[in-house]
């Protein structure tokens, strides 16, 4: 596996763990704009890197998550369901990353529920 991809995997994995923890915290304190921004930035970085590396599935998923969080930032109320969906998409991203780690390629597949 090329070094760039391997580095991407490590860094993205760490970012995702932080997003996980951050989201749970944000859910408890929905007014914490700093927290939301920090999560937003992480998701955005992941999205950008995925796009750069040509990982389409990942880029789409992260974009979807980012879109929903954008709504939160614009004042939409934070619900358990909403956060669960974002977390589920993070999980899916992790699965895809694990797939990439195994074969070096983004595995084909559908990300619909």
């Amino acid at each position: 596996m090329d070094e760039l991809l391997s580095e991407f995997l490590t860094e993205t994995g760490e970012s995702l763990d932080q997003i996980d923890a951050g989201l749970v915290r944000f859910e408890q304190e929905p007014n914490d704009a700093d927290m939301l921004n920090a999560i937003f930035r992480l998701v955005h970085t992941v999205k950008g890197t995925c796009g750069f590396l040509g990982l389409d599935r990942l880029a789409k998923l992260t974009h979807a998550a980012e879109t929903l969080m954008g709504q939160y930032r614009d004042g939409a109320s934070v619900t358990v369901e909403g956060v669960s969906v974002i977390l589920a998409s993070i999980d899916r991203i992790k699965e895809i990353l694990a797939g990439i780690e195994r074969v070096g390629l983004e595995p084909p597949g559908s990300d619909a529920i």
């Binding site: 974009h63 979807a64 879109t67 974002i86």
Partner: peptide, 25 residues
């Protein structure tokens, strides 16, 4: 709220496709 959830789910459904959507905004 419901609208955003739908939006995300729609994004998922669209995700596997052969890139129907260019990188948005």
């Amino acid at each position: 709220m419901q609208a955003t959830l739908d939006e995300l789910e729609r994004a998922w459904r669209e995700a596997p496709g052969p890139d129907p959507e260019p990188a948005p905004s």
